[in-house]
């Protein structure tokens, strides 16, 4: 397990995270993530080969409900917090 993050590592994770970072942030995050990862490495002490992973503490599965028609959020309410809208759609910068 790696215990420190290079600038390239940080930039790769930032890109996956869709986060634009300043140079100062890249440096400090590299150090801080490194120290947290170093601490986290203590889990390596444990042999967990035979242990099932547990995603939820209270394990429930297949929560069904009746398939009933319900009113959904009206369009103007759904759009009410949009940074940019034409009243019908969310507007985004041109992709193509």
């Amino acid at each position: 397990m790696s215990v420190s993050l290079s600038q390239d590592d940080v930039l790769k994770v930032a890109s996956l995270s869709r986060l634009k970072l300043s140079e100062a942030e890249v440096n400090s995050l590299g150090q801080q993530m490194g120290s947290v990862l170093k601490y986290i490495a203590m889990l390596d002490e444990l042999n967990t080969d035979a242990i099932e992973p547990m995603a939820h503490a209270i394990e429930i599965s297949n929560v069904f409900r009746e398939d009933e028609l319900q009113t959904s959020l009206p369009r103007e309410k759904a759009l009410s917090n949009a940074p940019q809208t034409d009243g019908n759609y969310f507007l985004v910068p041109a992709i193509l």
Binding site: L43, L46, T48, P53, M54, A57
Partner: peptide, 11 residues
């Protein structure tokens, strides 16, 4: 995945 396994040990 490791953390999810240790989570079970904790529970």
């Amino acid at each position: 995945l490791k953390a999810l396994k240790v989570r079970r040990l904790i529970r």
